[in-house]
Structure formats: structure tokens, C-alpha cells
Design a protein around this nucleic acid. Structure first.
Lengths: 297, 297
DNA sequence: CTATCTGATAACTCATGGTTATTACGTGAT
DNA sequence: ATCACGTAATAACCATGAGTTATCAGATAG
């Protein structure tokens, strides 16, 4: 065992694997091309396997190199997290949780969870960001997020879920609209009105659910406007551009300008899940999960 | 950002964290004590946090250092696995699976699984080891095992399971024993006979299940001999030292010297689970899991 | 109060990562 | 062809910093 592998090697490998050009990679690393060549060569000796095919024409990753690239990316992202964590602990915090959540959970549920969390772990700080389902999953997978709050049905393997809240849907109507809570009869009556929905791109499942409500009542909604943002939707309803169906929980704080009519009788419910990645090594997360599982058994 | 962290630092830290003595750690690392001192100091600068308390009296890990130790151990074990994996891929193998299994699955089930596996992934090599439940879990957690075959009920979080096989129990009786398959009446009849069981240490759940069978029939078994090993149990039965209850699947290959009487009417069943750690990054494992989940949906 | 631990500091040296200069080979344009 | 401009590998040199030895300052123990 002549040499020892170092992070330097891995960093060089990582950049070269991205650029697939020694010159370009060397420039990005602020070293000379021969220097990089030598280090990569050394690395291949250590691993006892070629990592790049040099066909005099092109530099390409070998099978082994392809595998290694993923792992190296993982290692560096992991080390980055460790650094943050160490400095957190050093500053007296137990750790930091990076939390993503849907706008539709921002009003009531997420604040409640954070409040509870803070009561039990006052030394854990949080970093909250509103974002759509899809992005949450993506960042979770990359270890760039610790906890997500999403509405969806299917989850990739390696993602754990815990149902936080089940909610009915509510109609959102302009103040001027003839239908009121008291005079409510049926969704069917609204078949001709234009609907405003959440964008389907970010959470197709949620969109399908909305559609199923309308379908159950025998009509296909006309949709002229979509938005990812609840406030925007309310604004549009307020302006008389259409009506909407949203999770009932969203009404907190918005009752002034629009009317809410809860649809308790229809079967559809929306479930808010707290999700996290099984393999996430953030110790703060581990504590939270432990607490969560103890609470609900 | 003055310096860059290197694996060297982490290795030194790891050893010092174990020894908690600069001299001793330096000796183990084959470097001089001042060299180690300097590298650790540098490391603390990089992390911007003290990792050791030096009280003029004793060297001890700080809170942050304690956390880091775990992570560093993880990183090195991970890199070790990566090295093996890279050399595997380089040698044409898709990868290697380290598989642990109970003796009671060795006869029929594990070979069948391996056979299927080999048909789909001939380039994945395996490394099979018989071991008790407990050890499998332990090695799995440490990423020293990829797949386990266990009989148990509860699993730690982070461990995934998949039921492979459900089996009835069978009585194991000496050839000379009056009770035969044909003449079978009830387990109760055996209340006075001495029983031979699997050791309770390694799988308390399994032991409890055995007990419940006897309990259901109104007796508490007398047990003089225990063993982890099925063959040993059969041998003891053969020698007339008692009778046993084992998963029916175990009889394959052993019918010569003892009689098996399958207990189809009692409710107890034993379930063999294939288990793995969610966060295991072995790509060969990922392939196998994917196949497994596709098969059974 | 000495003998012997401990870890930190200071000054030196030498291995090796990174450098420049050069070679060798490919491609594409003229 | 051959010239200009790519690519990466090789060789020889340089200089940074990891590891060295020597020493110091406290703590502990006989």
C-alpha cells in the first residue's frame, strides 16, 4: 500500500469527472494540467483501476469511474453537512434543521409543529423555506433538506413519511358570490363557473385530486388561471376571476376578502405528510424522529 | 478559507479520539507527537471549533468532537466499501453482496434466492455467512453486511424488510419415538417430554414463539439443552435427548435419522424476512431491491 | 525533589504536490 | 501537405508544508 488516498484526489476526480477535460478541470481547480494528470494517475493506482478512458480523442469515465462519481459527490456533500453541524454544536445549538413546506401548510400546521419542536428542543434551530412538493423531494434526496411537508401519495424508496394532518377541502368564493355557508347545496351547482387551481406541474397528485372532486360531481372544470401560491389564488378569487377549492386549513387569516365553504360531505381529503430521508445523518433530525415515533404509538 | 481538510486529518482525529493521548495516537500513526499536535490544531482551525478539551490533565472529546467521531468512522467505513466496489466493478463484477442468514434458512430458502439472483444478475458475486439474528442486525447497521435473512418481529428504524417465506412448524422426533406422522394426535401429549430449543439469546422473539406453542397446549416445556445450530439440535434429538419444534423447511436433507411431524393445525407460523439497511449505498443491493419490489407488486 | 509522565513550541529537512517546458498526437483549415 | 491550435503525457525543477528532532512547561508519582 504505497500511497494514501486524500480528499484532494477526490476533489480533483470530481471536477475532472464533470469537465471530462484535463485542461478545463485543471483551470477550475487553479492548478496546472500536468499536476492534475499526475494526481489522477496516482489515484487510479491507489484504486487499482482505471477511472477514465483516454482514447487519445476523448476523456470518458469508465464504469468504475461512473460509480465513483456518485459516491464522491455524496462524500463531499456529507462532509459539508458535517462541517455545519460541528460549528452548530460548537455554538451551543444542538443542530439545525432545514425544513421545506408547502404554502398550504404555512398558515397553521408548520408553525404548530415548529412550536412543539422548539419546546422540546430549544437548542435546535430551524431554517424554513416554502417550496413545492417536487423541489422538496429533490433537495431531500440531495441531503440539502432535512424535513419536508408535502401533499402527495407516492414516495420514492428511502423516503419515510408521517401523516401530520388530514384536512377537508373548502370552496373559496368571492364575497359577492350568492352561495354562502348557510345556503350551500352542492358543488354541482358550480359546474359552469371558472375555476382557479394550483399548478399541476409541481404536484400532479394534488391536481388529480381536485379534478376527481369535480368529476364526482359530473363536470369538468373550466380553468383559466393557475398558481402555485395560495395568496395569489385568493386574490384572483377576490377579483372575481373564478372560484377555487383549497385545503380548509388555508382559511386561517384570509377570511376578510373571500368566503370559505367547507365541503365536509365529499369523500376527498388532503393529507399533509412530514417526510425525511432515511439515510440522513443529521443528529437533530434523528432526535425529532425519535420523538415523533414515541408520540404516536 | 485558508486550509483544506484532508482525510489525513480525519484519520489522525479518529485515532486520537480513540486513544485520547497524543503520544499513543502518534505512535499508532507512525508519526511524531508534535506532528500530530500540529495537524489536530490545524483541523480545529478548519472546523472552527475545538474538538478536544486539553485540561492539562486529560485529553477529552468535546461535544462537537464526539459527534465528529461518529461521522468520521462512517466516512472511513464508507470509503473502504467504495474501494472494494470500484475494484469489483473493474474486475467485471457488477458488485458484491455480503449476505447473512440464519441456519434455519440455509437448507432451502437462501439457496433458492441466491439461485434466482444469479440468474438475473450473474455479475453480482455473493459472500454468504451463517449467523444469528442479532449479529446480522449489528453488521447491517455498520454497513458490514448488505442483506440479512432473519426471523424476528420488530426492526429498528432504517432497516427495511421483505417477507420471503412463511413456514409451519414441525416436531422433530427420534426414529424410535412412538408418535409418527400418521399417528399424530396432539402436541399436548408431549408435555412431559424434554424439549430442545434454539438459544433464546440470539432471537428472543423466536424463543417466545416456541413457548407460545407449548403454552397454547397447556404445558410449560422442560428444556435441558439449547443450541443455535439446527444440525446440533437434530443430533441431540437423534440421540434421544429430547424432542424439538423447528420450522418445517429445515427437514430438507435431514430425514434419515429423525422423524418430522408437521403441525399444520396450530396457528403459529414463522416468517423469514429479508432485511437490508435503507441507507446502504451498495449499488448491487439497490438493483436487487428494485427487482424484489417489482416482483411483488 | 527528582524521575517521568503529559502536550505545546520552535527550528529544521525533505518528500511531494505543483510548476514550467517540452513532446506527441489529432483535428480542421488552408 | 503543412500550419495552427487542440488535446494529454513526460521530464526536470521548485517550494510548500508534513513530519522531524530538540526543548520547554506542567502535572503526577515515588
Amino acid at each position: 500500500m504505497s500511497y494514501q488516498i486524500e480528499l484532494r484526489h477526490l476533489k480533483y476526480f470530481q471536477v475532472l469527472a464533470e469537465e471530462l477535460k484535463f485542461r478545463k478541470a485543471a483551470d477550475r481547480l487553479f492548478i496546472s494540467q500536468p499536476g492534475l494528470s499526475r494526481q489522477i494517475k496516482q489515484m487510479e493506482e491507489i484504486f487499482n483501476a482505471p477511472l477514465f478512458d483516454r482514447n487519445k480523442k476523448k476523456v470518458a469515465l469508465t464504469e468504475a469511474g461512473l460509480y465513483l462519481k456518485d459516491e464522491v459527490d455524496f462524500i463531499f456533500s456529507h462532509i459539508e453537512n458535517i462541517k455545519k453541524q460541528v460549528s452548530n454544536i460548537n455554538e451551543g445549538k444542538q443542530g439545525e434543521l432545514r425544513i421545506g413546506f408547502l404554502g398550504s401548510a404555512a398558515q397553521k400546521i408548520v408553525p404548530e409543529v415548529i412550536f412543539k419542536l422548539n419546546k422540546v428542543f430549544p437548542e435546535i434551530s430551524t431554517n424554513l423555506d416554502e417550496m413545492p412538493n417536487k423541489l422538496q423531494i429533490e433537495l431531500l434526496e440531495k441531503d440539502m433538506l432535512d424535513i419536508g411537508f408535502v401533499r402527495m401519495q407516492q414516495f420514492n424508496p428511502g423516503i419515510s413519511k408521517h401523516m401530520i394532518h388530514q384536512d377537508t377541502f373548502s370552496l373559496v368564493l368571492p364575497k359577492s358570490h350568492p352561495m354562502k355557508k348557510a345556503s350551500y347545496e352542492a358543488v354541482k351547482k358550480l359546474g359552469d363557473e371558472p375555476f382557479i387551481f394550483f399548478s399541476s406541474d409541481d404536484s400532479p397528485f394534488y391536481y388529480d385530486l381536485m379534478m376527481s372532486i369535480c368529476e364526482d360531481h359530473g363536470f369538468k372544470p373550466k380553468t383559466y388561471h393557475k398558481s402555485v401560491n395560495a395568496l395569489t389564488i385568493f386574490k384572483l378569487v377576490e377579483e372575481g376571476l373564478g372560484i377555487a377549492i383549497v385545503p380548509t386549513g388555508l382559511q386561517y387569516g384570509y377570511q376578510e376578502n373571500v368566503n370559505f365553504v367547507e365541503l365536509t360531505h365529499i369523500p376527498q381529503r388532503t393529507e399533509l405528510y412530514m417526510i425525511w430521508k432515511e439515510s440522513n445523518r443529521n443528529p437533530a433530525l434523528k432526535n425529532v424522529i425519535k420523538l415523533l415515533l414515541k408520540d404516536n404509538t
